[in-house]
Amino acid sequence: MSKKEVIIIGGGLSGIMAAKTLMDKGITDIIIIEKSRSVGGRLATRRIQNGKADHGAQFFTVRSPELQTDVEKWLQAGWIKRWFGNPYPRYTSVNGMNALAKNLAEALPIELNTKVSSIRDGRDGPLEVELDNGEKILGKQIIVTAPVPQAHTLLPEIEGTELKHITFAPCFVGMFTFDKDSIVPAPGHKDEQLPPGVERVVDHHKKGISSTVTVSVYMTGDWSKKRFDLEDDTILAEIQKVAELYLGEGNQIVDAQLKRWKYAEAEEVVRSPYVELGRNQRVMVCGDVFLREKDEAGRTRFESAYLSGISAGERVAEKLKGSSIV
């Protein structure tokens, strides 16, 4: 049984930023536990044959001074570029959005392919995180960055009634390889004048991250919700009809894949960058659904996840430095 000052559950953007904030404040006895084989969460990129496709977040915008400062650093490092957009530029990673997550997480202590089964809040002792393999990790503070419905399943003994109303819409993304150029207009992003049920279409070759022509088709939450129980092949066939609109003369689809995002976007947000739960409020839940009170955009996005992680990290650092909990 190991011990850590802070256990962070989830290696998406919020978890990464919480960890970086703690490290910057001198709290280094931490661990990020991530169930997937890579960090990033919805900063997700998939290799398809010789190409690649972003199939989660495609870009991000900047409103806060904190993110603007980091964006300047990321631009200088060559991690990101300005893709399109006015008055708010859309920034994207030059090698796929997952590459940005990996760059940000490079120096952080992370356990990949590790799934948490439960969190227990002992009366007087440390918090206890139990893993699927039966291993237990004790911690002074826990930050949970998993989507709220998943967080609830980990916290059966910890009351969090203020979060029970948070629901998420799913999103289906079809990814298609074309054998020739698509007719998606430059710079490779289209979110207007689309067929019913389609949110956006992205050409990753024109975006600059894929050597081959790969096109992602994002379906809306309502469309995806109505078809959630259908078989993958049935869903993909429907989405392919949309992709075929962008083939161009003599073009063909040579590969097709589907990504199901069960928790794509919250249908309601929390007007606080985190929520503290449990005995002595030692369990914190944060993520893109947790917005700062003066957030002007009012919706979940890359920046809300980024800011929520920073706020959570700052709060935990403050508590640990003023705490005598053993």
Rank of each mutant, 00 (worst) to 15 (best):
T161F: 09
F228M: 08
C171R: 15
E135W: 01
G122T: 07
E268S: 14
R47V: 11
E267I: 02
E66T: 03
Y91R: 08
A99C: 05
L194C: 07
G174S: 11
M1D: 13
S93D: 11
N280I: 03
D29F: 00
V6E: 10
H204G: 06
H165T: 12
V6S: 13
R260L: 09
R260Y: 09
K241M: 09
I209N: 06
S210G: 05
A151L: 05
G11P: 03
A99T: 08
V254G: 09
P147G: 13
N280H: 14
Q257D: 03
E268G: 04
I183S: 12
P109Y: 11
K206S: 08
R82Q: 12
Q49S: 10
S38D: 15
G248H: 11
W83V: 08
A107C: 04
R47G: 10
G134M: 05
A264M: 05
E111V: 01
E276S: 14
V198Y: 00
D233C: 06
A146G: 06
L104I: 08
S324F: 10
A101N: 02
K3Y: 11
V254R: 14
N86Q: 07
E199C: 03
L155Q: 03
G160W: 04
T21R: 13
V217W: 01
T300S: 03
E276N: 09
W79C: 00
A243S: 02
P195Y: 12
V217F: 01
H189Y: 15
G313T: 01
I253G: 13
G12Y: 11
R63I: 10
I209M: 04
D222T: 01
D255G: 07
V326E: 13
A99I: 02
M175F: 00
V148W: 02
D29Y: 00
S323P: 04
I137Q: 09
V242D: 07
N95L: 15
I27F: 05
I31D: 01
L245K: 15
Y218W: 12
P65E: 15
T92Q: 02
T61S: 09
T300F: 00
